[in-house]
């Protein structure tokens, strides 16, 4: 087989790239075994497309190249596949992800397949013009560069997170000095005062202030926090719903929830690690406005 080595190495490195990107991130994907299986299978196809594309180009097999391009188009479907499946789960979740977070996750999933195709193609290219070692090296470099470019920014780079006390002034619930909501039931007030957790997010820059203002970003934070700490809430106790409210004057955001696990240190760690969503990233002072 004339191009066996390049296709073989491209396929192997591509599949390895998909496996390493398939890590069960606590935010991105619940550990569904069937989700793993389908993404592994699609990963093999993506790796094959990438690995075969270079030899097909070199041997001027234009029909093959055309077909490979058509197959690559199919990976655009991954985004809608992820979006649909996560949207379908929204109705039955106590704390939803929100459409911004879903869109972000779906985009990440789509991008991972393009990384796989890119890694497989680079490895195949390296083998065609050098040795198996060159191909391996090129594949690894491409993988590292892609990860570097496609990495998500954690919230703590632009936002300071501090634990703040949950307190009441009359029936009004506050986290630190930020008003959250009015709680009418005495029983709920005393329960929240005892079991509630609060944090205040202070933006470090103007753009971070806009990021925090975005409702999708705030819902993503609440979903992550509730997903890990748990929430003491049911449909008939809406006052225990996690809430993120903005302090209009300063742009700070107060986070309130009644968690299953009363761990304020873990709360700050989770918020710090929440990804900054691409769609909610602040743009103030970056936009060019004609004056």
């Amino acid at each position: 087989m004339p191009h066996g080595k390049s296709i073989g190495l491209g396929l192997i490195l591509g599949v390895l790239a998909r496996v390493s990107l398939l890590r069960s991130d606590y935010r991105q994907y619940p550990t569904y075994p069937h989700g793993y299986t389908s993404h592994l299978f699609l990963g093999i196809i993506a790796a094959l497309v990438g690995a075969v594309s270079i030899p097909a180009l070199l041997t001027k097999e234009w029909t093959a190249v055309t077909f490979l391009v058509i197959v690559a188009q199919q990976f655009r479907e991954i985004r809608s596949m992820e979006r649909d499946s996560l949207k379908a789960l929204e109705d039955t979740q106590l704390v939803t992800r929100g459409s911004d977070y879903i869109e972000n996750i779906a985009r990440v999933f789509e991008t991972r397949y393009y990384i796989v195709i890119f890694v497989a193609a680079s490895a195949a290219y390296g083998v065609e013009y050098g040795t198996v070692f060159t191909g391996f090296l090129l594949g690894v470099i491409t993988y590292a560069a892609s990860i570097l470019v496609a990495r998500t920014e954690p919230l703590h780079r632009s936002v300071k997170v501090e634990v703040a006390p949950v307190n009441f002034k009359g029936a009004s619930l506050y986290v630190g000095d930020i008003f959250i909501m009015n709680v009418g039931l005495e029983e709920s007030r005393s329960y929240i005062a005892k079991h509630g957790l609060g944090a205040i997010l202070t933006p470090k820059t103007e753009t971070a202030r806009d990021t925090l203002a975005n409702l999708g970003q705030r819902q993503a934070i609440l979903h992550d926090v509730a997903g890990i700490l748990g929430v003491k809430k049911d449909l008939d106790t809406p006052e225990y719903t996690p809430v993120a409210r903005r302090h209009i004057q300063t742009g700070r955001v107060g986070i309130y929830l009644v968690p299953e696990e009363l761990d304020s240190e873990l709360l700050t760690r989770i918020i710090n690690r929440t990804p900054v969503l691409e769609s909610s990233r602040g743009r103030t002072l970056r936009r060019q406005v004609p004056r």
Partner: peptide, 29 residues
């Protein structure tokens, strides 16, 4: 009043808000 508001809140799945002046309202959010 608190007891009645709690029951209504659980039945209607709404949140109870205290308007002061002896008025509690149940609101669906």
């Amino acid at each position: 009043r608190q007891e009645r508001a709690m029951l209504l809140s659980r039945i209607l799945q709404g949140a109870v808000h205290d308007m002061g002046n002896g008025v509690l309202i149940v609101v669906k959010h």
